[in-house]
Design a protein around this nucleic acid. Structure first.
Lengths: 233, 233
DNA sequence: TCAGCTCTTTGACTTAAGTCAAAGCGGTCG
DNA sequence: CGACCGCTTTGACTTAAGTCAAAGAGCTGA
């Protein structure tokens, strides 16, 4: 679904994403030439683990969840991607298929960049290559933290770390807002809703936080930081 | 420690690594011009999490372990790298510091590539950039599997998957050889030696494998595959 | 060769977190 | 408005895996 009317604004938008920041106008035009804008309804599958990847995506509007599922149905969320973020690049550069599933968490508008055209563009454009390397390296760093958390920290530690991360990201002092349902947050933290619920109560009982639905107030930041650090009570 | 006498053979060796395969001779020469050969004794720290990364490494000889440690001392191994494999690239491209620790598992000879020189080379060399992208994407895929295993599979499932992986890698039919001490293997699988020992016995008792020290014979490949798939007994 | 390591195994026990079940709480859509 | 459906919470129970302790096994080097 190529939409010629929007080429101009698409070029501008692409230039503002971290992936394509700093690219010459001419290259951005080429890029927009190969880009396809596609839409997905909430809860629609974008791709599944094992699918062949013929290109990758950039979130224009909406939110996308990348996740894995065990045969018994337990879900582990790897990422939640929002506007401006790329996903699905692994098969483009490493070959093979997608290692995880992608689903639209909300109605989405995505930019799809077909593999071959895109690789040609990367080969001709060092700045783009370096931006991509930075993006993948940042994601490796994030996965490293996730492995660290899953393997070396208990649930309260992971939760504390996540709350501190959110508070930093939202720049709202000690107030923060959960951006996912508690069920989804549990899945992101590698646990289940019941356990998450108990741990949130526990953190409140011990005076670290104050819970009001999806709003949380950090009342003992230092304590929370200590908990995130050592990984357990 | 630049060793001019070895420039010729170094160029040839670099050209045979997957990272630099397919690069023009001229570029390989440039590369070897910025490369420093450094040696580390067994058990020596190469870098620690949090250290500034001024470049990255390529294993020439020996084995390197990349790992994290919890405050209580539990270790989680992320990778074991051998000859020809690069490590420590994350801070080169994503900025910031190393996310994990690196130690020499054996006496090692490493190639160190300083950041700035190397980035310039990447910018001038699309083939190199694409090789690097492939390497980082492959590592992301591997981490995805690791997160899947840690979060969605129990220890026997992870162990079964690892044994099948080893058997495939070693191309020795149903015979395989553990390449790490069982303590280190436990740390790679996200568990502890006692648990690993019990699970190996259990797999043997149930007829999946036959253990003889570090040699293991797969006696029920299909069963092991099923176990690796569903993740638990 | 044997003293002193580290690695591995086994046993008894503890514990974090998952399972199962049920009740409460909201929204929202006929 | 009210019935339904999904999300959340709570309680009782189970279980996988970690902890602690001790004994064996295997190497290594004096």
């Amino acid at each position: 679904m190529i939409d010629d009317n929007r080429d101009r604004s698409l070029v501008e938008w692409l230039g503002r994403t971290s992936l394509f920041a700093g690219m010459a106008e001419a290259h951005l035009r080429e890029l927009s030439g190969i880009a396809m804008v596609v839409s997905y309804r909430k809860r629609t599958t974008i791709f599944s683990a094992g699918d062949q990847g013929n290109g990758f995506y950039l979130v224009k509007e909406g939110k996308v969840k990348i996740y894995m599922i065990s045969p018994e149905g337990k879900e582990q969320i790897l990422h939640i991607f929002g506007s401006g973020e790329p996903f699905g690049e692994v098969p483009v550069f490493a070959g093979k298929s997608f290692p995880a599933h992608a689903v639209a968490l909300e109605d989405c508008r995505l930019i799809f960049l077909p593999r071959d055209d895109f690789v040609a563009l990367v080969a001709a454009n060092p700045a783009l290559a370096l931006n991509l390397l930075a993006a993948l390296a940042a994601r490796l760093r994030q996965f490293t933290k996730m492995i660290d958390a899953l393997s070396l920290k208990e649930v309260p530690g992971r939760l504390a770390a996540h709350l501190l991360f959110l508070s930093e990201k939202q720049l709202a002092g000690d107030n923060l807002q959960l951006e996912l349902s508690k069920t989804q947050l549990a899945s992101l933290l590698g646990t289940i809703p019941e356990t998450l619920s108990r741990m949130l109560s526990k953190l409140q009982r011990e005076g670290f936080i104050r819970i009001d639905g999806a709003k949380i107030l950090i009342s003992d930041r230092a304590g929370l930081a200590a908990l995130a650090e050592i990984g357990k009570f």
